[in-house]
């Protein structure tokens, strides 16, 4: 049996795929923009450099309700040079803020907690140091079942 595919069908298909492709990055950008705006308020607009911050997360989270993360920063934690604050931001959640940790020159800059992730997304950690510099690290997590309830 001969299958006929009309020119019109093919073009409509391409059009739909194109529209979807054009739309998808725009949604992702909106999430990232909201996260950037949120972080900008917290950091006072200082641009974050890549490095010093490590975020340990599972690459694949089957249950988005409890995703364990560990954040560490390369810092001696002396009174002259320590991490003041670490902000955790989930770019794809309904609200980007997850947590902010405030340190004093003691112990080491390492915190472990568990968070909710609504879908597959990048999670970012931004560290503000006592010398005024701002550093960041990020990690993508693929989420199988979203953790925002419904």
């Amino acid at each position: 049996m001969k299958t006929t595919v009309s020119r019109r069908t093919v073009l409509a298909g391409i059009g739909a795929a194109g529209a979807a492709a054009a739309l998808a990055p725009r949604v992702a950008l909106a999430d990232k923009a909201a996260a950037d705006e949120y972080l900008g308020k917290l950091t006072g607009g200082t641009a974050a450099q890549d490095g010093k911050v490590k975020l340990k997360l599972p690459q694949i989270a089957e249950n988005g309700n409890t995703v364990q993360f560990t954040v560490t920063v390369d810092s001696p934690m002396t009174p002259e040079n320590y991490v003041k604050t670490i902000h955790i931001v989930a770019e794809g959640n309904p609200a980007p803020g997850v947590a902010s940790f405030h340190f004093t020159p003691t112990g080491k800059p390492e915190v472990t907690m568990r968070m909710r992730l609504s879908k597959t997304q990048d999670v970012r950690a931004v560290a503000m140091l006592s010398d005024g510099s701002v550093w960041q690290g990020s990690q993508e997590v693929k989420v199988t079942i979203g953790g925002c309830g419904g």
């Binding site: 947590a99 968070m115 909710r116």
Partner: peptide, 10 residues
């Protein structure tokens, strides 16, 4: 040490 937590904490 202190922390601010938001709705995304489990």
């Amino acid at each position: 040490f202190s922390a601010d937590w938001h709705g995304a904490i489990s």
